[in-house]
Design a protein around this nucleic acid. Structure first.
Lengths: 212, 212
DNA sequence: GTATATTACTACTCCACGGTAGCATTTGAC
DNA sequence: GTCAAATGCTACCGTGGAGTAGTAATATAC
């Protein structure tokens, strides 16, 4: 009964070309990370989620670390592409208002986050068991974004005394991440316009009633 | 040569009472987490760092999870005690200005962070391999802090149109965490007064030159 | 229809690490 | 000085999970 001759063999997964299989495996890994954290991505769990067996994974990736690294690079590249597409070019900056630019960018950014939640989830959320490599990649991506944010802050500096563009750059990036996290956590409660409205109020696009 | 009769036996660690040993082990674990992340805290690595062997750890804690949980609870309790000691009581709030209160609290908070870096490091920094339990505890602590921050924001609400106290509360907490992270990362470059100065500038404690 | 190349599966190995049984050493009480 | 209690150490076990050798199945070309 339990001999190999009588044990039913698992039906084969549909054969697919290598590139499609890679994408399928990365999508499955992303889902596992987003729902259960990095340690949930065991090779067994991933094989099960993808509907294959472990050797199929090893056919596409040299190991678990290689797969996670490929996933990280894919999501990071896509996220940064999306993000930098939202930030106007420097030449556009000169003609406008920094405060307005930041609030409009925030609005577009949060709508992008809502449209591609898994991607942004693994970019901005604190994820259980997140490996060092993911942390480093986030830090590097943040550094790139910080450079643009600082340029925007320096542009705005001319208007307010006591302004520290480096700190302002960090603040902009951190507030964008915070907003993204809340939008992802509860999209109905935290709609983009709440953040945009608050940012407008905070940086003076509406008139304060009484000077503080 | 390699028989147990000739293998030198490890000299005994100095005997210490249970409570002191627990503290020593938790301190060693905190150091490992801060320097290398949670996965670096294996029972072997911890024994080595503490200068004992594994059964000594099991004499104080039922297992690895128990030890990490004890560490988390110790640091969390101490951090929240420190933090709530910094925030004035509600009765004090009525007599003052919310903006001034927030900036003064930020200043005191960042000085506290500099004085107890390991504690705050494991409270605010993104740590490699951080388990779900640590994430949940941070979320719960943040929720508690958010309630106070929201009260402060509601206090400030009366002064500015378009104000969303919930979003403002999240913003205050997130900016405090951001400042703490930068202070911990590079204390010479990110001195508390840079954040305090920027916060003052941002919320209008200095006069804007030109309305935006 | 058959053969072969390509892709997938079963059953297994290996090891890092959590955890422990049994023994050794030290310290304090008498 | 001796003895026993308390604390610490060595050597080992069990297992989850990464990874693979050998075999099976399928799909396409002829």
């Amino acid at each position: 009964m339990t001999s190999t001759t009588s044990r039913k063999r698992r039906p084969y997964a549909t054969r697919v070309p290598a590139e499609e299989r890679r994408t399928q495996l990365l999508d499955a890994a992303l889902r596992l990370i987003v729902t259960s954290g990095h340690d949930a991505v065991t090779m067994d769990a991933l094989a099960e989620r993808a509907g294959v067996t472990k050797p199929v994974i090893y056919g596409q990736f040299s190991g678990r670390a290689d797969l996670l690294d490929a996933l990280l690079r894919r999501e990071q590249r896509a996220a940064l592409s999306q993000l930098f597409a939202l930030i106007p070019a420097e030449t556009d900056m000169r003609a406008g208002e920094p405060a307005r630019l930041v609030t409009e960018t925030l609005d577009r950014f949060l709508r992008t986050v809502r449209e591609t939640p898994d991607r942004w989830y693994c970019i901005v959320m604190p994820l259980p068991d997140m490996p060092s490599a993911f942390h480093r990649a986030r830090d590097e991506a943040r550094d790139a974004v910080l450079r643009r944010a600082r340029e925007i802050a320096e542009w705005g500096q001319r208007r307010v005394d006591g302004f520290d563009p480096e700190i302002a750059g960090h603040t902009i990036v951190t507030l964008f991440e915070m907003a993204a996290r809340l939008v992802l956590t509860d999209p109905e409660r935290y709609r983009p316009e709440r953040f945009v409205g608050s940012l407008r109020a905070a940086i003076g696009l509406v008139t304060p009633r009484v000077g503080l």
